[in-house]
Amino acid sequence: MNIFIYRKKILEDAERHFTSWPYIMPYVLLYTMIISLFILSVLPTGYVSFSDLQPSFLMITVFYLSMFLPATLPYTVVFILGVLFDLIMGFPMAITALLLVSVQLIVQTQRRFLLGQPFIVLWLSFALICAAGFIIQWAVFCLFFWKVMLFQPILINASLTILLFPFLVVCFHKIRNMIVEGQQELMAHE
């Protein structure tokens, strides 16, 4: 499908149902959740006694939405989110953006195969992408600073991200169901 028709269709759909609460609410919830996860990633960890634990909520978000709701999170938004994260965290410019766009691209190319698979396959795929992502990020940091960085925190944070995946997926799945139900309800009225 032509991109212009594709975008036009989404915009028309949004415009048509803009005043409809069942249509808007799930999107409000979805974007509130994305913003909350972004903020949670940078808040002082001392408030919750996390010490140095820093799971990548953004990676889970990008993976899930690229898989199940790709139109809600365009590459441009993912890139901007990554750059903002780098600016706030003091990371080398666009390093997180590089990681997140790569994750989105990989998921997009494997989407057709992964969509029909049971959850455990999806989780394993995420684990693989997450581990590779953390290792690549570690390597880029080492090259950037020209020093060998500690690997243990990378392992811990990658494991934590993988363990948190099912919990966030449950939340995202509920919102996705609400989006689908809202659309079906609207279409039933039409």
């Binding site: 991109i3 989404i10 139109a71 989006i179």
Partner: peptide, 14 residues
């Protein structure tokens, strides 16, 4: 619409 993959040409964007 929401579940459709992004258009093929969009690989140029990433």
């Amino acid at each position: 619409i929401l579940h459709m993959p992004l258009p093929l040409y969009s690989k140029a964007i990433p």
